[in-house]
């Protein structure tokens, strides 16, 4: 198992490097930071523009490979991600934005996966009964609904809830109330109130996907011979399912989990934009519109690392669940 995981890890690291490099190159070729200076009135002198662009490492007259080497060198050796197109240090914003995004991503994926798997299992066990039909209808609906639609619908819902309750229980902007004067628990309650809607926006879709796939996997296992044998040996249906069936049915879920992080990251981007959370996703979208190469590359690196870590965790889970891997 150790060797398997090590190989996977090495693989991921290579992929992270490739992804970041590609992002940098694509961004450098397709984006035009020069335009931020050209639009100004009065236009700054050409020499100053060149100097600024070079200082930020985004001058298209400088060789691409050289710029890339500088940037990567900065990242690997100093942990310095360079400057934005307006001259701000990327590192300053990096920490807070990363935390904001991670809060959303981790919660959303855990809730989505756990509840989704449970829903799938229940759905399979109670096949064709009301619970199953309800869960199936739910999954169909939320697979079909994009995150931004869900988010707005949730906002609608939040408004009515707030009206019914009489005060603002569910927040739909930002991740905390600024200048809040309350104790520790007051702060926690505030944060939770802000977290609910965005997390739900992501989690609802994830639950739908997971429950659908898990249902199928579970059904396959339930019809299998080895489960019947377990029951013939004397195990109750439930015990047989949990002891033998569930583990087998969970194996494909580990792979699904790994591959879902990519879409999760995109979904989080929408959510951040809509709910006004200043996270990596929002930063990315803004940087594309503002032609900011370094930020694009930085966010890509972080997303890739995030996918790497979660993919690796999924591999660990997979190795734990599937004894065939431990050869």
């Amino acid at each position: 198992m150790g060797r398997f995981l090590l190989k996977r890890l090495a693989n991921y690291v290579v992929l992270v490097v490739v992804a970041t490099t590609l992002a940098y190159i694509v961004a450098s070729l397709a984006l035009n930071p020069r335009s931020t200076y050209e639009g100004r009135n009065p236009p700054p002198p050409a020499a100053v523009v060149e100097q600024q662009l070079t200082a930020y490492g985004v001058n298209d007259k400088d060789p691409l490979l050289g710029r890339y080497a500088d940037w990567i060198g900065g990242v690997v050796l100093h942990g310095d991600f360079g400057q934005t197109v307006r001259g701000q240090d990327i590192n300053d914003q990096l920490g807070s934005r990363a935390l904001v995004s991670l809060r959303l991503l981790v919660l959303g994926s855990i809730i989505g996966a756990v509840v989704g798997v449970l829903a799938g299992v229940v759905s399979a066990i109670k096949k064709y009964k009301v619970t199953d039909r309800a869960i199936t209808a739910y999954s169909f609906f939320f697979i079909a609904t994009p995150v931004f639609f869900t988010a707005v619908l949730l906002k609608f819902g939040a408004l009515s809830v707030n009206d019914a309750v009489g005060s603002t229980v569910l927040y739909y902007t930002g991740y905390e109330t600024p200048n809040l004067q309350a104790g520790f628990w007051g702060h926690v309650a505030d944060q939770v109130g802000h977290l609910i809607l965005p997390t739900l926006s992501i989690a609802l879709g994830q639950i739908a996907y997971f429950s659908r796939y898990q249902r199928n996997a579970m059904l396959d296992v339930m019809n299998s011979d080895f489960l019947r044998t377990a029951e013939a040996k004397g195990l109750t249906r439930r015990k047989a399912l949990y002891k033998h069936g569930l583990r087998t049915a969970l194996i494909p879920m580990a792979t699904l989990l790994a591959y879902s992080f990519g879409t999760l990251a995109v979904g989080a981007t929408f959510t951040e934009k809509i709910f006004g959370w200043h996270g990596m996703g929002e930063w990315l979208v803004d940087s594309i519109t503002s032609q900011d190469i370094n930020v694009v590359a930085t966010v890509t690196l972080f997303t890739a690392v995030f996918i790497l870590i979660s993919g690796f965790l999924a591999d660990v889970i997979y190795a734990v669940l599937d004894p065939r891997v431990r050869v």
Partner: peptide
Amino acid sequence: LLVIPSFLV
């Protein structure tokens, strides 16, 4: 291709 941030590209 899976690792490349498709949305981004």
